[in-house]
Design a protein around this nucleic acid. Structure first.
Lengths: 303, 303
DNA sequence: GATATTGATACTCCCGAGGCATCACAGAGC
DNA sequence: GCTCTGTGATGCCTCGGGAGTATCAATATC
């Protein structure tokens, strides 16, 4: 069913009428609008006929608003103002000067590269709001697929996710984080087989199966059966548990820059899992300038 | 200084874009809009060029919104909806089906004709809001002159106010309202000279000098000097004072239809002031349909 | 690879917005 | 009272551009 065109006027009519209503003088209004006076007369008359309502009471000598005209003016003015602001806003958004980026991250990202990226991004694009939420890798891939986040810092699985561009940010052999009171805390370097009796704090396997399985593989290679103390998430909680002396946890060296006093980080020789952190984003969607800006900063900051 | 035309688009562009953005399909959108498909293509392309921003990402096979396009759509949709509602509202207002009337009144009006008028008006024009405030005559004339009220129920002075149309609603010789315990409360009819020792409750002279002076004239004609007990306003308070036994007050018979138990109304023979109530409105201003409707009802109800 | 679908382009037409000249009317000034 | 000036409306013409028809170009589907 062809929908009837809903508006008996065009913006031009409204703008013209508004100017006449403000100045209550056709010639002056015409000059302001850089248009000839007859055009104004006709345009306003047209608007009135289209509405079926007299908006202006004009004698040959003076012009005044009718009550309906006043009401009409009051109704359209905020709408015209709103409309006038749209182009600049959109252009700013398209130019990457405004807007928002939704970003998901893993705990490792927040402990390493992310703070620096955010600081630099905020410096260069103060108009763009960054919406952050910590999510496990599996969730991030889902969110990316649905377009609910623009990009994510996650841990890639063996199977490269289809339709995503990624950039590797970290790729490090893990050490272990031990309670300061652990019997091996003084050792310079450890081997996994030394830790056979130490409970390990992990995370639910579904959150990042790749890393989880690499942990198990490393233990198997070292010839020991790991003791899994607990599976917690998000990441900060794991460190908390280590700190409380409940066990150890694997940790990338980059993550170990700033640690609380009650824990110590030790490199591991021999078999040990690797942490991989990548920044991933959909490559098929229309390029969001805000995302582009974020990716540029993230690439430059971590390069 | 000729102001630059502020809008790089017309309503047509926005409506066309909105439909394409909704359906993500040029041909279907064209059909909905009852326009040919090429017109749509050009119109949207024009809009994009005018904004300098790509709103739609179109392959030959499918159409999708860019982030800027989505933002643009979200910005213009409420504005378009608002604009669509304007014509009907204005037409209702011009047809007297909506709007508001600001009405001032004296206490006498509220005690006599006004309630009936308001009831009938609300029945016939439920869309029109009536804004009421009680004001003395002098204030009402000022408000009328400034256009702050559309009409007023007031007490005309000898000097007919210029520029106003009026319609007489009441013109009655006053009786007096006495406390039930007054020594003359049992009398069928009174004369002013019987009330020489009775204090009278009045109102500030400035509020209605005509009536005030008619009161003094009537007393003078009756050969007595009135005792003015108090000058109160608004009117309801005067009745309260009488009820409390502090004195008497003049009252039009119409006003005496419904009285509290503790007071009695008595007609006065011989000299007595007259109450006049008129409905007045400016005759020079652009006719407000809502006012017209109110005047019609007020005229019919009290005729 | 043939076909169908879909948005873009070429060309044309014609409506209507806008400019110019002028009119009609109301006040102001003499 | 007459004229002059200022104002909004009207007549006429031009021309830009919006819209229609026909067609092209590209891509997904079979």
């Amino acid at each position: 069913m062809p929908r009837e065109y809903q508006y008996p006027f065009e913006l031009r009519h409204l703008v013209y009428f508004r100017e006449v209503a403000r100045q209550l003088h056709y010639r002056k209004a015409a000059e302001t609008l850089a248009v000839a006076q007859p055009a104004l007369s006709r345009s306003v008359a047209q608007l009135e006929q289209a509405l079926g309502v007299d908006l202006l009471n004009r004698t040959r000598r003076k012009v005044e608003l009718t009550p309906a005209g006043r009401a009409f003016l009051e109704r359209i003015e905020p709408l015209l103002r709103g409309l006038a602001a749209v182009p600049a806003d959109i252009q700013a958004l398209a130019g990457g000067q405004a807007g928002q980026v939704r970003v998901a991250f893993s705990g490792l990202a927040m402990a390493t590269v992310l703070p620096g990226i955010l600081r630099e991004f905020n410096r260069r694009y103060p108009g763009i709001r960054v919406e952050l939420n910590e999510s496990p890798t599996s969730t991030q891939l889902e969110l990316l697929k649905n377009g609910e986040i623009a990009c994510g810092f996650f841990h890639p699985d063996a199977t490269a996710p289809a339709g995503l561009s990624t950039k590797v940010l970290l790729h490090e052999k893990n050490g272990v984080l031990l309670p300061a009171g652990h019997r091996l805390a003084a050792a310079k370097k450890l081997r996994l087989r030394d830790l056979a009796d130490t409970p390990f704090v992990m995370f639910p396997r579904a959150h990042n199966p790749g890393f989880y399985d690499r942990v198990l593989a490393a233990f198997a290679q070292a010839g020991v059966t790991p003791r899994i103390a607990d599976e917690v998430w998000p990441r900060a909680n794991a460190i908390g548990l280590v700190r409380a002396g409940l066990g150890a946890t694997f940790m990338a060296p980059s993550e170990a820059q700033q640690l609380p006093a009650e824990v110590v980080f030790r490199p591991v020789a021999g078999p040990t899992p690797e942490s991989r952190l990548v920044l991933g984003w959909r490559k098929d969607v229309a390029p969001d300038p805000a995302l582009g800006a974020f990716l540029a900063v993230a690439g430059a900051t971590t390069a």
